[in-house]
Design a protein around this nucleic acid. Structure first.
Lengths: 100, 100
DNA sequence: ACAAAAAATCGAGATTTATCGATGTATTTA
DNA sequence: TAAATACATCGATAAATCTCGATTTTTTGT
């Protein structure tokens, strides 16, 4: 994934917030209902609630973050759970040292 | 300077290119004429030549990079020289580890 | 098989960013 | 002091991004 593509995804406050919140799901989101823990992350509706933006906007944001590999998506039944892709995030930070 | 402000400045290919080129001015730009070396960086016109964009656009880009402290500007007579602010760039990269 | 729930996709209007040419401001040189 | 040069700023248009509501798709209960 190209550095600049990821950079553009990250140049938005809400998307940065989401990435940040997902660092500590248990602290930033209500307890899980349909799955036992936060192993696969947080479902779209909880993220949407927290941002206050529309469902379509948040779904779009999460999809684009997923497309550049910043997030890992897992479907459980009706729900899609998103969690951070720590490897890719680290790669990105490390790549900055060369790219900038 | 806020993380997101810098991030937005960096979410543009030309501006990233400029930052990158200024890492090795002697490699990426013609030799200096009005100053003895690249100590203070590269003048606006050489950067403009290299990008092929208009003078006003490049001046605008350099100004915004300067405003968020990524570049240091030095005036010598008619010319303005821009160079990287290595401290601020490092700060930014380090801040990412907390922000992301 | 059907209705409901969650998420994804589509289409459109509003906002922001990119980019230009024209003009203004310093500084130098004739 | 006038003309020229380098850069900054202004105003405007084009392109991209943000964001929404509506629709479609996927999956589950009934």
């Amino acid at each position: 994934m190209s550095f600049l593509e990821i950079n553009k995804v990250l140049s938005n406050k809400v998307r940065i917030d989401i990435l940040h919140w997902l660092k500590k799901p248990e602290k930033n989101f209500p307890p899980q209902v349909n799955v036992p823990d936060f192993k696969d992350g947080v479902c779209v509706c909880h993220i949407q609630d927290k941002t206050g933006l529309s469902q379509s906007t948040i779904s779009h944001y999460l999809t684009m973050m997923h497309k550049v590999n910043l997030l890992i998506a897992t479907r459980h039944g009706k729900w899609t759970y998103y969690k951070r892709n720590e490897n890719e995030i680290l790669n990105y930070i490390n790549s900055l040292k060369n790219e900038l």
